[in-house]
């Protein structure tokens, strides 16, 4: 019935198979901040957050790798899957501070301006567009 859920996806030895426990995944679960700080880097390193060589260009013969699911990360690190989900979701949005958004605005302004100065062709033959600092 819950084919998407692996048999072991909670703490070691736990087995979420009843409808009530499945529903807990959708509930309001807040991860302990200390746990977040302790595992944040490890969890992110196992996800699709910073991708290296896990793209579709690579042959599907074992060379291509994907980020791990929350269940797989929970198994590997011995954590509750709900904590893994919360650590990942918080960390994904916590990777860059609000100042990154100003850098983003500057980048988009500069990129669009560069494109309009010469069109796509300009980027083939000219220098890369400047970014404001």
């Amino acid at each position: 019935m819950y084919s998407c859920m692996p048999r072991r996806h909670g703490t070691a030895g736990a087995d979420m198979s009843s409808p009530i426990e499945r529903g807990e995944l959708n509930g309001f679960h807040v991860v302990d901040p200390d746990l977040y700080d302790r595992y944040r880097a490890e969890v992110l390193a196992l996800t699709n957050s910073y991708q290296v060589d896990i793209n579709e260009f690579l042959p599907n013969d074992g060379t291509r790798k994907r980020g791990l699911s929350d269940a797989e990360i929970a198994d590997r690190l011995g954590l509750d899957i709900r904590d893994v989900t919360e650590i990942r979701v918080v960390a994904e949005h916590d990777e860059y501070p609000i100042e990154e958004y100003e850098a983003s605005a500057r980048f988009k302004d500069a990129a669009a301006a560069s494109y309009l100065e010469g069109g796509v062709k300009n980027l083939y033959k000219g220098d890369p567009p400047p970014t404001k600092r």
Partner: peptide
């Protein structure tokens, strides 16, 4: 294309600015 690198979190902050 080989050795592709992608910063998904930075991209998200730009796409969902």
């Amino acid at each position: 294309v080989i050795k592709r690198r992608y910063d998904a979190d930075r991209c998200r902050d730009r796409v969902y600015h």
